[in-house]
Design a protein around this nucleic acid. Structure first.
Lengths: 129, 129
DNA sequence: AAAATATATGAACGATTGTTCATATGTTCA
DNA sequence: TGAACATATGAACAATCGTTCATATATTTT
């Protein structure tokens, strides 16, 4: 068991507890107050989950060069049309990409400037080793 | 089947193919040339995969306010010590956080400025709705 | 209208993941 | 040294995920 979790009960009358980590309670309360809501954090995790797959990252990296149709992506990634299309629908549902139709073809592109920025920072983090 | 993937064979003698999407081949080749290597993209996906979990995002959000010990995180997140510790080890293995020991306690903090930036941009993307 | 083309989608299956439970390791204090 | 405390870790199990295969939908062409 871990008594540290009871520090925030503010038992200042009891020296044996109060003296150990009197500042932890403040840190916990303050951090809790400054953090985004659980709902926001959950949605953020869902967004990153979509970034967290090699196929989808490759698609995003390709689209960051400009819009592209499904068949080009299949060719570029050397993957089946079905696999690519499934991942495109995941990316679209998460609003990381958007689409437009031109005749028989669908053209996909990054939804938003944030997407390129997140991708770019992630790549920079990996490259700096 | 999807003939679009054969456009880049440059069959300019065959009008029926060459006229459909003569520019696709260039787009594919140029995109391929500009994209980061598959190895970089795979590593990038692995990094985002680590961001893609609610518990880990909550830990990162907490640590972006400053370093914190394991017991404080357990209290803050209202989760078991084991669950938190397991996720801390995942975050550490991916070098998203670093640790230092002070007596019996381990203090964790964000590893790098990129981590806070990625988290922050992700949250911004979610909040702008 | 029928055939061809481009893309989307449901079912299924193996692979990966996050938690819990039990226990091990490392540090301090008496 | 032994007890208490703080954290780490292995095994296991349910749940989630990404691909393949088969098929459906939408658009254009003949």
């Amino acid at each position: 068991m871990n008594d540290c979790s009871y520090v925030h009960t503010f038992t200042y009358g009891d020296d044996s507890l109060a003296e150990i980590h009197p500042e932890h309670a403040h840190i916990i309360e303050q951090t809790k107050a400054n953090m985004p809501s659980d709902e926001i954090l959950e949605k953020t995790a869902e967004v990153f989950k979509v970034f967290g797959d090699k196929t989808r990252i490759r698609i995003l990296a390709a689209l960051s060069e400009g819009e592209m149709c499904v068949c080009c992506l299949c060719d570029l990634l050397e993957m089946s049309q079905s696999a690519v299309s499934h991942q495109l629908s995941v990316l679209k549902a998460a609003r990381l990409i958007k689409s437009r139709r031109e005749g028989k073809q669908m053209y996909y592109s990054l939804d938003d400037a944030h997407i390129g920025a997140i991708l770019c920072t992630g790549i920079s983090h990996v490259e700096e080793d």
